[in-house]
Design a binder for these strands. Structure first.
Length: 897
DNA sequence: TGTTAATGCAA
DNA sequence: TATTGCATTAACA
């Protein structure tokens, strides 16, 4: 195999990275997005291709020979953005310390360096790969040189070999310059021949091959107008070609060994990464060093790389020491806590250890010896000791399992971090420590490893585990003050204290209680589905005349669109689309299509719901204990996983049967209470639109009313069909829909859809005004808020890319509505939970599905629980209009509708 | 073994 | 080219 050379156009790619990554800066405010994106891409390339030689080429400010040829060259280019300029030198410094070669040469552009070096390497029979965002480089492609052009973003690349260039341009790579010579390039201000665009240029080159040849034979050009243009502008064409030609023979001394990857300066890299807050790069650096040096231990390397935090702590492993600790803690009254246990079974998990920090001291309680978790009860249940957690749901779960409660829970760093910026997808304490304290601590992944080889806490040595836990609780104690300041600064304290913190215990309780499953029903459905699938499968094969995997969109696509030659409706980036709406359009064209639709339905039900649910039933309890996640959804909603109980089928009758599996506990009934149109009511309240408010005050049917207004039909002539179309319009408004979107869902022409939307905004002018104001404000301050001041940053709102900006605008309109509804039901959950607890009822909250609560209700408590639900849900938050709740009682979830 | 794309389920 | 999620399968690195 040939050795690989990677050559990167530094200016081009850092530019791409800069615009692809909306905003990123360290806490001093130094922008780091371009660097970060570039390095991310670089590391991925190195990882994927393992090149022997690498170089990054840069432009210098000095003018090049091209500027001397044409004073207009690149005349229309704007200068580098202010936020990007300083990142160039910072990136170069990192590259130098990574041992990666860098090229720049006065009088030449990066392209010329790349061209010259690439050709030299090509001649030495190396496999050359060029990475850039600029299609000019395609002229360099030959047998030894492949060019990769960024598509969208920076990690998405398109590979160009000779045949790929030909496929796209119908030209050979070395004709790209002739092409530019004729058609010009506005971005570089290369004139070309006026009046000759891409189409004509290609046509001419197919016949004459080069610009020179074309000029020599211009009399042979058939089109008179074009012949005139060629003759008039031949000098300009030749100049343009020259400008577009990348120099491939810069006369310089060059030895390919200069491009070898040299040794890293690890210490310096760590320093730079720390400064720019590239924590993930630090981690990767550590892992990499581990693989390289087998002789040194992990600890030694860690010490060399980052001065990881180490602290002194008191080890507690007998009851005497424990009681001393308790009396000390009772003096200080505020502690951070961290429980150590492996998740195996929600009801029988065994605690391994417990770390506690107060303002002076850190303790690690070993729970594998004389001291047991239950001995911590005196602390956890002491109402005078404030508890600080990081993902406290874990602490509540282990406490419930040992039958104790946690009192005076006042702070959770995980939740705080989420409220400060809900758009992030990782909220590890190690990252927070770096961000707020500039301290490096072991992450969970550092301790346990990741993926399938990840260890459990019980596999970790006592000293590693106790050190990790002690540091964790200490850092948590320290960082909580910083997070608290930030919450106050952002006006989030009320939401945090009144809603999110009380919710932690409730989510733990909901998960701990679980939802009872009737496995015999599950088995019946399974049998039914399995039979149906078998039958449909053989019917499908009888039409396709061959067996294939119906679940594979790729194979199905081949059968439908190649073998059976059905018309292609839509394509995905990898091939034919076989999605549901495509199949519906083909339904009547071939009998196989409805069978595939049916197969899909049953297959989905079996794999996701029957097999999926069966695999997570707890043997101990006969229930599923779904996780309700508090820091996942950017709008403030909860999310559910393992299993996801928020997407159990309901719309289609066959799917709805799955709900028969979910049943009330013994001697109980399920009560399902859901808000009636909470999001539209929130919209009415927030927009203060007179017509919407009126509708809800008078308790009118909002969909019928919208139908009448939008379609101009009298109220008493609205049919069920028209009403349901209006319902789609109402939903669409909440999502910030476009005319195209509405036309797709309603299957109507785009123009009609546009008219409907205009009608809607005319009849509900307050909504229009509210949407406009929300977007305007977001453009100014960079974020939107909900009723309870929950915040979501939307940096793309001012993006120059239309698609990104439009998406941001829809987000800005939808988030306050979806998020405020989420705020309200969270308050309702808290109030319902507290009432059940205060009134000492046996009934338990077992699920939330965005606008509905499900209570497993003891049969003797049905009436009182109904009252509590209506009362607490309808009065959770005072809007300008009433909130209404619908309720159903049943033995299974199927029966509660 | 881990990641991505396509698909489809809910509010 | 309608918002927010999660889980599955196939395909591929």
């Amino acid at each position: 195999m040939k050795d690989k050379v990677i050559i990167i156009d530094g200016n081009s790619l850092i530019n791409r990275a800069f615009f692809a990554i909306p905003s990123l800066s360290n806490k001093e405010g130094i922008p780091t997005n371009g660097m970060y994106g570039f390095l991310n891409m670089l590391f991925k390339l190195l990882d994927k291709h393992s090149p022997k030689y690498v170089s990054v080429a840069f432009d210098l400010k000095a003018p090049t020979f091209r500027h001397k040829l044409s004073s207009d060259y690149k005349g229309t280019r704007k200068g580098m953005p202010d936020d990007l300029r300083p990142q160039m030198n910072m990136l170069k410094e990192i590259l130098d310390n990574l041992g990666i070669n860098r090229m720049e040469l006065e009088g030449f552009e990066a392209d010329d360096l790349i061209g010259s070096v690439a050709k030299l390497c090509g001649r030495e029979n190396l496999d050359v790969m060029i990475f850039t965002g600029d299609k000019d480089a395609l002229q360099l492609v030959d047998d030894n040189i492949t060019v990769y052009i960024t598509k969208r973003g920076i990690t998405n690349l398109k590979e160009y070999r000779e045949e790929d260039v030909f496929e796209e341009f119908t030209l050979m790579p070395n004709q790209i310059i002739d092409y530019k010579g004729l058609s010009g390039d506005t971005s570089d201000n290369i004139p070309g021949i006026p009046g000759v665009g891409p189409k004509t240029a290609i046509k001419l080159l197919l016949e004459f091959t080069t610009v020179e040849n074309l000029i020599l034979n211009s009399e042979k050009v058939k089109n008179k107008r074009i012949r005139g243009l060629v003759e008039e502008y031949k000098e300009q064409a030749l100049l343009s070609k020259k400008l577009a030609t990348i120099v491939t023979n810069i006369p310089f001394e060059f030895n390919v060994d200069e491009l070898l990857i040299k040794e890293k300066n690890i210490e310096k890299l760590i320093e730079l990464y720390k400064k720019y807050e590239f924590t993930s790069f630090i981690r990767n650096l550590k892992e990499e060093s581990l693989h390289l040096t087998n002789t040194t231990s992990e600890d030694e390397i860690n010490n060399n790389l980052v001065e990881e935090e180490e602290i002194e702590f008191k080890l507690i492993n007998n009851l005497n020491e424990l009681s001393n600790m308790v009396s000390e803690i009772k003096k200080n009254k505020v502690i951070s806590i961290k429980s150590i246990y492996d998740k195996a079974n929600i009801r029988t998990n065994e605690a391994i250890g417990f770390a506690i920090s107060d303002k002076d001291t850190t303790y690690y309680v070993d729970l594998l010896g004389e001291v047991k978790f239950i001995d911590l009860k005196v602390i956890l249940e002491d109402e005078n000791i404030k508890k600080i957690t990081y993902n406290g749901k874990r602490e509540f779960l282990i406490a419930f399992r040992y039958g104790i409660s946690i009192e005076n829970h006042t702070f959770d760093g995980f939740i705080a971090n989420y409220l400060i910026n809900p758009s992030r997808n990782k909220y590890e304490l190690s990252d927070v420590a770096m961000e707020y304290l500039s301290k490096a601590i072991k992450s969970k992944e550092d301790l346990l490893g990741k993926g399938a080889k990840a260890k459990k806490y019980c596999d970790i040595s006592f000293s590693d585990l106790s050190n990790y836990s002690a540091v964790y609780s200490r850092i948590l104690f320290e960082v909580h003050c910083e997070l608290d300041k930030k919450l106050i600064e952002l006006n989030l304290s009320e939401l945090f204290i009144d809603v999110e913190i009380p919710l932690v215990e409730i989510l733990a309780s909901t998960e701990y209680e679980g939802f009872k499953v009737d496995e015999s029903v599950l088995n019946e459905i399974d049998e039914d589905l399995t039979n149906k699938l078998r039958e449909i499968e053989s019917e499908i094969y009888s039409y396709s005349n061959e067996k294939f995997n119906i679940n594979s969109p790729k194979q199905l696509g081949v059968v439908l669109f190649e073998t059976l030659e059905l018309p292609v409706i839509k394509k995905t980036k990898t091939g034919f689309s076989t999605s549901h709406d495509v199949l519906i359009k083909l339904e009547k064209k071939h009998p196989i299509v409805p069978l595939v639709i049916e197969y899909r339905t049953y297959s989905k039900l079996k794999s996701t719901y029957v097999d999926g649910i069966r695999s997570v039933i707890n043997k101990e309890t006969g229930k599923v204990h779904s996780s309700l996640n508090q820091t996942v959804a950017v709008t403030g909603r909860l999310s559910s996983s393992d299993p996801n109980m928020q997407n159990i089928p309901v719309r289609i009758p066959i799917g709805r049967k799955i709900r028969k599996v979910f049943v009330a506990d013994n001697n109980c009934k399920l009560i399902d209470a859901d808000y009636s149109q909470i999001e539209l009511r929130v919209l009415a309240h927030m927009s203060k639109d007179e017509n919407l408010l009126l509708a809800y005050r008078e308790n009118l049917d909002i969909h019928t009313m919208t139908a009448s207004k939008v379609f101009n039909i009298p109220l008493d002539e609205i049919t069920a069909d028209i009403r349901s179309r209006a319902k789609e319009v109402n939903f669409g408004i909440v999502y910030g829909m476009s005319d195209y979107g509405l036309s797709e869902t309603l299957k109507i022409p785009r123009k009609t859809a546009k008219l409907y939307i205009e009608q809607y905004f005319e009849k509900y002018p307050g909504v229009k005004e509210y949407m406009d104001t929300t977007i305007k404000e977001c453009k100014e301050i960079g974020y939107v808020v909900t009723l309870l001041n929950r915040r979501r940053y939307i940096p793309e709102i001012n993006h120059k890319n239309f698609n990104l900006r439009s998406f941001a605008e829809r987000t800005a309109m939808n988030t306050p509505i979806q998020g405020s509804a989420a705020d309200i039901i969270k308050i309702a959950m808290i109030n319902v939970y507290n009432r059940l607890k205060r009134e000492k009822l046996k009934s338990k909250l077992i699920l939330q599905v965005h606008d509905e609560l499900i209570i497993d209700t003891s049969e003797d408590e049905i009436e009182i629980v109904k009252e509590i639900l209506v009362d607490e849900m309808e009065n959770a938050y005072k809007l300008d209009i009433p909130l209404l709740v619908d309720m159903k009682v049943g033995t299974s979830w199927f029966d509660t509708k």
